[in-house]
Amino acid sequence: MGIIDQILAGEVRATARLLRDIDDQVSSSQTILRELYPYTGKAYVVGFTGSPGVGKSTLVDQLALRYRKEGKTVGILAVDPTSPFSGGAILGDRIRMQRHFLDSGVFIRSLATRGHFGGLTRSTNDMINVLDAMGKDVILVETVGVGQDEVEIAQSAHTTIVVTIPGMGDEIQAIKAGIMEIGSIFVVNKADREGSRKTVREIRNLVELGMRRREESNGWEPLIVETEAVKGRGIEDLFQGIEKHRDYLLANDRGQLDDVLQKRARNQLMEALRDEALKTIVGRLESRGVLIDDLVRKVVDKESDPYSVVQQVLAEELR
């Protein structure tokens, strides 16, 4: 069986190895991705973002359990940061998901950002496609949760869940510019802690404020759900919330699903275009014996400037 058939048959080892190639940007993986593309588009993608320690992994674990009860198969991608000093990483999200290790209906992959910003890895969208092609019904994606610019997930997921904990109202206020806009559902996790209701109220205020602003583009009013993930409390509400959002997207009278798909496709397309264009240009330069390092030297020595160098390169290589 070739690799394509193995992936389509849901073969774990083959899938795992392909994901590795994608992550490492091995060029042959692109050919495989191309072949797999027609088989994608069936999985439902749910993204989780929020600061470290709020309980994203725990929620993913619980939701995976809930989806398994429905008989759905689950793929999980969990992103942790790469150390900027060493390039290494410790990936620990799996610790929270141990109960699924022996369930063949759940595939978990830990990823390191490898210098990519925005909360995901540059490979995440491709990996979603692979898990989709391998037959996972639902794909849960956990972002790094460090930056305030973690909005990339909203371009990859059908439903984006922003996770907070009691007492984080102020923090949300400060970062609302990015995060408030992307949440389809807001979770106040650790609702066992003091101040949970207050945080719910604060978020509701922010949501209402935001609704007024984005009214015509989108008719969805973000839900707010309280959970206590460690004990599984509120998970049913969250699950129902996701279903509701899904129904909303599928209702299709306003083309909401199409919006999501377009956003994702555009994002992926632009990224691929950027990568390929760069690769092509660098390749052409090198074939003419021009090294990037030489260009860099010119800029450093003030013989030229970055802007002129780019104009010149483009003019010559894209003729």
Binding site: A16, F85, G88, A89, I90, F101, L102
Partner: peptide
């Protein structure tokens, strides 16, 4: 930590793992 500082990507799953869990993780994480 030492492996991370050496530039490797380390998947850490904590204590009390059965052989079955370890092998399943090793394969999924490639």
């Amino acid at each position: 930590r030492a492996f991370r500082d050496a530039g490797f990507e380390v998947v850490y799953t904590g204590c009390h793992q059965t052989p079955e869990q370890i092998v399943s993780t090793a394969i999924q994480e490639d």
